[in-house]
């Protein structure tokens, strides 16, 4: 028990682990570190103001491996799971 808590606090002190956007739970925010998709995917996301460095909030996850609903500077954007999996983020 103590060991676990210690382990957790150690993790916290270190750099936060990078994960895919689909791993972020609803109502949590994350900062985008990298977008591993192709150029077109980056452009389409960029048009909606979503890019490396953006802070987004996950609003909800659709069931049956459906899309993820994000909030980014006041706009709701639905992103399919395929693209979302390629967005690498850091939870904040």
């Amino acid at each position: 028990m103590i060991l676990k808590a210690w382990d957790k606090s150690m993790n916290f002190a270190e750099e936060k682990p990078l994960k895919s956007l689909i791993k972020i739970r609803p109502r949590k925010s994350a900062k985008i570190i990298r977008i591993a998709g192709g150029k077109n995917a980056r452009l389409i996301l960029g048009q909606l103001g979503i890019g490396v460095g953006s802070e987004v909030k996950v609003l909800r996850n659709a069931p049956f491996a459906g899309p993820i609903l994000l909030e980014n500077s006041g706009t709701s954007v639905a992103i399919g799971r395929g693209i979302a999996a390629k967005i690498i983020v850091e939870e904040i």
Binding site: G37, G38, N40, A41, I44, L45, L48, P67, L69, T75, S76, V77, A78, I79, G80, R81, G82, I83
Partner: peptide
């Protein structure tokens, strides 16, 4: 061919 997937604004 694989399509890039959905990126869609959900308006109020």
């Amino acid at each position: 061919e694989v399509s890039p997937g959905m990126v869609m604004e959900v308006p109020s």
